[in-house]
Design a protein around this nucleic acid. Structure first.
Length: 479
RNA sequence: GGCGCAUUCGUCUAGGGGUUUAGGACGCUGCCCUCUCAAGGCAGAGAUCACCGGUUCGAAUCCGGUAUGCGCUACCA
């Protein structure tokens, strides 16, 4: 069972998960599911300063929302401090690592000096060859040391990345990085290697920004006598200006997309296509299709700009493909939250279901549904009288309303076809074009110039409210 | 500065020596449909495949260099 695929998503709990991190999670998850492997959730909470309360829960909720289930975990690195410490000390004993007593002030000064003299930055290895006595004196002074890795000063370290091929690094350029911080917490480098080893991780798929520190990891595996996993460094996600996607580009946290009314299936599909493709044309794919076809070979090397226009389009596609019941259900919380306060709560789900077909193909996000339907809920319409007549003059608009009202009053039923059959001929009768003619009625009924189909809307609104609105419009234009 | 990675329409991408007058999608423009707005259909504009050399009968595809972009260069991940 040594060939079993075991991958992990290992976020640090520093807030709402970034779409880039979620994309990394998704590729790991897809890879695991495609290969019938194991997907592990591990929380890398080794930075006490950046840790945010509740972030872990949010991460788990986000994964849950997207339907990315994990098979093991969540594991917390903060619960495994003894283990990291043990290996750090083992490396010190084996002379593969050493204690460093340098203060952060000295380190800062050193870096400044290096920058001023245009030297490559990096720890100057002052503590690399301390004698036992020196170590004891420093300890006696109450200085808590960090543990640094003794990087080789010559040779090369190469990695074979599943996406980028062989990448070679000069060991002489690698500095003695910290393994264990003075607060007893491990750095990413140590914790990562220890955990990946103990969790039997077969493939490490992470963002490209990690490529540069991978030789450190390789060296650490070797120092510990462990076999490294395979690496795949995923392309990054950029903002429209091609810099790393960040807040100034708009929403970056996955939950923002949830709140903006994007469907989880849209996010999965869209994110999957950011760096991976099935072929030269397939774009809309179910989660199952993506799983069935996912492979690292088809992951691209190039960073991708997050194209929100395309996301919106795709969300529209998914919204239109929803059943009426499903669409109604998903709209409900948004409508509940964003309809004007004067509308009575709870919102009538039955009524919303009648409305749903009118707006389903018009909405790109669930969040815009409330604005699309609010005129069907409020009691009094607010609109500018001038839009009522549209291309017509005032007298014509009055006639349109009067004729329509009397025609509708005579009507037996309140079915959209019946209404249309009765009203449409009126425009001919008055030798008006249907466009401007209907427009008057549309504004009277909806309070706006763009709306779902007029008669279907009227059918849903109901006879009483329609007549009331038409008469109100007549009053309004006359006064 | 050093090291690393990358470079095909504005964007996401297909393509991996001849099948390519470089294909698809978003967006954009026009037309059709049409009671408005959408949706849908059709059409169009949009890429000298970053640049320069090389290999080859032949290169977007292979190699080298240059440029540009990005990443890393913390007791952050």
């Amino acid at each position: 069972m040594g060939s079993e695929v075991r991958v992990r998503f290992a976020p640090s709990p520093t807030g709402y998960p970034h779409v880039g991190n979620i994309r990394t999670a998704l590729f790991n998850w897809l890879f695991a599911r495609h290969n019938k492997g194991v997907f592990i959730l591990r929380i890398e909470d080794t930075d006490q300063e950046r840790k945010v309360e509740g972030a872990t829960e949010i991460i788990m909720e986000s994964l849950g929302w997207l339907g990315m289930d994990w098979d093991e975990g969540p594991f917390f690195q903060s619960h495994r401090l003894d283990m990291y410490k043990k290996y750090a000390e083992q490396l010190v004993t084996e002379d593969k690592a050493y204690y460093c007593f340098c203060s952060s002030e000295r380190l800062d000064a050193m870096r400044k000096d290096q920058a001023a003299r245009k030297l490559p930055p990096g720890y100057d290895r002052r503590c690399r060859c301390l004698s036992n006595e020196q170590i004891e004196t420093e300890k006696a002074r109450g200085i808590v040391p960090v543990v640094r890795f003794k990087s080789p000063t010559e040779g090369q370290t190469s990695i074979t990345d599943l996406i980028r091929g062989e990448v070679i690094f000069e060991n002489s350029l690698m500095d003695d990085f910290v393994l264990l911080k003075s607060d007893g917490y491990p750095t990413y480098h140590l914790a990562n290697i220890v955990d990946d080893h103990y969790m039997n991780i077969s493939h490490v798929m992470r963002a490209e920004e990690w490529l540069s520190s991978t030789p450190r990891h390789i060296l650490l595996y070797a120092a510990l006598g462990w076999k490294p996993p395979q690496f795949a460094h995923l392309p990054m996600i950029l903002g429209p200006d091609k810099s790393k996607l960040s807040k100034r580009h708009g929403a970056t946290a996955i939950n923002e997309y949830q709140n903006e009314g994007y469907l989880p299936e849209t996010m999965i599909n869209f994110l999957a296509l950011l760096g991976w493709s099935l072929d030269d044309k397939t774009e809309i794919m179910s989660r199952e299709e993506i799983i069935a076809n996912f492979s690292v070979e088809r992951v691209s090397k190039t960073a991708a700009v997050f194209n929100k226009d395309k996301l919106e389009w795709m969300n529209g596609v998914y919204i239109r493909n929803l059943s009426i019941d499903d669409f109604t259900e998903r709209c409900l919380p948004f409508v509940e939250r964003r309809l004007p306060p004067e509308v009575k709560r709870p919102i009538d789900a039955g009524y919303l279901k009648q409305i749903a077909p009118l707006v389903q193909e018009r909405a790109k996000t669930l969040n815009e549904v409330p604005q699309l339907v609010d005129f069907l809920f409020v009691n009094k319409l607010e609109y500018d009288t001038i839009i009522l007549q549209g291309k017509l003059d005032k007298v014509q608009a009055v006639v349109v309303l009067e004729k329509s009202i009397s025609m509708l009053e005579k009507l037996e039923g309140w079915d959209s076809d019946i209404m249309e059959k009765a009203i449409r001929p009126l425009s001919d009768e008055l030798s008006m074009k249907v466009g401007p003619f209907f427009s008057v009625l549309r504004v009277a009924i909806t309070g706006r110039t763009a709306s779902p189909p007029l008669f279907q809307t009227m059918a849903v609104l109901g006879r009483a409210r329609c007549m009331e609105r038409l008469k109100a419009a007549l009053q309004k234009i006359k006064s």
